[in-house]
Design a protein around this nucleic acid. Sequence first.
DNA 1: TCATGTTGTAACAATAATAGTTACAACAAG
DNA 2: CTTGTTGTAACTATTATTGTTACAACATGA
Lengths: 146, 146
Amino acid sequence: MQISTRFTVAVHALLCIAYFSPERKVTSGFIAGSVKVNPVVVRRTLGQLKEADLVTVEAGVGGASLARSAAEITLLDVYRAVESTGERLFNFHENPNPACPVGGNIHAVLDGELAAAQAALEDRLAQTSLADLYAKLADLTGTSAG
Amino acid sequence: MQISTRFTVAVHALLCIAYFSPERKVTSGFIAGSVKVNPVVVRRTLGQLKEADLVTVEAGVGGASLARSAAEITLLDVYRAVESTGERLFNFHENPNPACPVGGNIHAVLDGELAAAQAALEDRLAQTSLADLYAKLADLTGTSAG
DNA sequence: TCATGTTGTAACAATAATAGTTACAACAAG
DNA sequence: CTTGTTGTAACTATTATTGTTACAACATGA
């Protein structure tokens, strides 16, 4: 299974905000034009980012901004905002047989390893900030500041 | 989104084989009784493990065995056998706008980070072998060898 | 030969998540 | 009051997962 496009859409939206704001008003329609999805999809994603205090959105007038500096927003923040709703990455089967020596101990044997694997993923995501991505982007586009 | 139960079912099945085989014939029905799922689900999973050369299954007579030693089967092997069919963990939106400086460079900026995060997950999975899990299980059940 | 138990696989249903879309009330500002 | 935007509801389509029944193919022993 794959992690949904919400995550990359969210990162894309944040990069748009970092790149264009505040020179241009970055609306859901503008972001949608860059990502090439329906504006409602962007609004849903921005809603999750707002919930996680990563962006602020102006009601009525329109336009989104970062709620904190790009250096203080990591990919893990974004991942947690749009993907993991407090849940585990690995999904376990519900009712292993407690009467079987394997079924009765499968959680004790496996849970720690799965948690460690998820932690490895999240640790790596936490090492990359939006500022890192912006620096790469600015390098590619020749933009000095945004 | 979560990684499907196929992965934990597969690990559970392999642990059953490691623990009970060859003293008992480990059939799909027997594994299903430990995992508490339908035997057909187990057969489908065993089919994927067989495809990946992790187990052998006796047609007709019944019963599964490890195709190599438990020390030579890692969680990454299992993960790849049942989950990632050569695909990426992170799912990207299809058509970023190439005319937008962000949309046109989003892959160049983000792909490497996503690959690194997936690699971190897989590297951690590769560090744990079925033998490690079996040792934990034997410790819990007081079994010296199986 | 035949009965038995098993595997492999097809077929189908139920459920859930994702993603796209239309529609519209609420809002802010000129 | 007009305009443009947000937030959200509602609905659809698609896909993946999971559970289930059914059955042909197979190996073995009686």
